[in-house]
Design a protein around this nucleic acid. Structure first.
Lengths: 195, 195
DNA sequence: CGAATGACAGATATTGAAATCTGTCAGCTG
DNA sequence: CAGCTGACAGATTTCAATATCTGTCATTCG
C-alpha cells in the first residue's frame, strides 16, 4: 500500500504542507495543493485544521521547535558558563546562517510564515530566552557572572545579539566581517556579565 | 510673485518631492506629481535629477543627514564619556521612536526609501558609527573605557543596540517594556566597556 | 543660448472580468 | 456511523486590456 492509503493524520498533513510550501512558495501554496499532494479532498484537510492560517501556524511552530531543540542541548550542558554562553550564541548564529545561506528560498518562505505568526515567534523567543536564562543563572551561581535579574539580563543578551539571529538581518550574515562583528559583540557582552 | 515663478533649483525639487511623498506615499509618488506640484513639466525635473531613483536617493540622504545632525552635538560634547555614550544612545532611540510613533505613515514612507537606497543607509551608519567611535575614543583617553580597537568597539555597540534604532523593530518601540529593555542592554554594554 | 517644453517609445501600474481558492455542510461510502 | 467527498457562496487571485509613468530629445521660448 502506498502512503496515500494511510490514515490521514495531522502529522501527514503537516509534512505535505511543508513539501507544498517548499515547492510552490508561501504565496502560491494553497490548501487545495496540500489536499492534492495527499490524494484527498480539501474538505478532509479542514477536518484537522480549522483554517488555512491554523495550518500554516502549525507548520511554523514545528519549524521553530526544531530550531529550539538544536540549542537546548548546549544550554543544558555543564561546562563553565562563559564557554556555554559563547557556544550557545555561536550555535544560534551558525544555525540561522546555515539555514539562510543553504536554501535561501526555503528560508524566505519561513520568514514569511514567521511574519504571519507573531504569537508562535513570541513563544519561540520566550523559549530561547529561557534557555539563556538558565545559562546565566548557572553563571551567577558559580560566580562567573554578576546579574541582579538573570531573566532580564538574558533578555538583554538576546536582544543585543539580534543582528546575528533575527531574520531581518539575514542578508548581512554572509558578508566578510560578519564573524568578526559577532565576536566583538559577544566579547563586549561577556565582559559586561563578569562580576 | 508666487514660489512658482522662482528659478527651479534642485533644492526646490527636493522640497516638493518630500511633500508629494508625504501626500501620496512612496508607491504612488511620481515624477509627474512632483512636476505638477512645482508647476513645471516633468522634463524640467529630469534636468536636475537623471532618474527618479536618483531623486528619491537625494531625498533619502537629506532625511538621514538631518537625523545624524541631531546627534552630532552630543557626540561632540565634553562631559564624561560614559554619560555622553548613554545620552547619545538614548537620543538616538528617542529620535527614532518619536519619528516612528509621531507620524507612522511618513515613517513607513522613509522606511521604503531607505530599503531602496542601501548605499545611502550605509553612509549614514558609517557616520553614526564614527560619532560613536569619537565618544569611545574619548573614554579610552580618560581611562573610563577599555577598548583595544575603538572603531570595532563602536561598531559592536551600534550593532548591539540595533533593536532600539533599526526601523525593522519600529513596531516594538511602543511596547511597555521597551524603555527597560533599552536600559538593560545599555547597562550591559557600558559594563563591558569599563577597564 | 541656456532653460523649459511636450510628444513619444518602452516600461510599469491599474482595472475589472474570469478563474481559483477558502471554508461549510448535506450527503455518500466503506 | 466516522470519515471523506464535492458542490457551493463569498473572498481572493490572476490576467489581459487600458491607462499612466519614465526617460529622451527635437523644438520652442525668453
Amino acid at each position: 500500500m502506498g502512503p496515500t492509503s494511510e490514515i490521514l493524520t495531522a502529522e501527514r498533513i503537516l509534512e505535505a504542507t511543508e513539501e507544498v510550501l517548499r515547492r510552490h512558495g508561501p504565496a502560491k501554496a494553497t490548501v487545495v495543493d496540500v489536499a492534492r499532494a495527499l490524494g484527498v479532498s480539501h474538505g478532509s484537510v479542514y477536518r484537522h485544521f480549522r483554517t488555512k492560517a491554523a495550518l500554516r501556524e502549525a507548520v511554523t511552530k514545528r519549524w521553530l521547535d526544531r530550531t529550539s531543540g538544536e540549542l537546548s542541548g548546549i544550554a543544558a550542558g555543564n561546562g563553565d558558563p562563559e564557554t556555554r554562553l559563547r557556544d550557545w550564541l555561536a550555535a544560534l548564529f551558525a544555525a540561522k546562517r546555515r539555514k539562510a545561506g543553504g536554501d535561501p528560498e526555503l528560508f524566505a518562505t519561513y520568514t514569511v510564515l514567521t511574519d504571519e505568526n507573531g504569537a508562535a515567534v513570541g513563544e519561540h523567543i520566550a523559549d530561547l530566552t529561557s534557555q539563556l536564562t538558565r545559562i546565566i543563572q548557572a553563571g551567577v551561581e558559580t560566580g562567573d557572572f554578576a546579574a541582579a535579574d538573570p531573566r532580564a539580563t538574558a533578555r538583554a543578551v538576546f536582544q543585543a545579539t539580534g543582528r546575528f539571529h533575527d531574520p531581518c538581518y539575514a542578508r548581512e550574515w554572509e558578508e566578510p566581517g560578519a564573524e568578526a562583528d559577532f565576536t566583538a559583540v559577544v566579547d563586549l557582552l561577556v565582559r559586561g556579565l563578569r562580576p
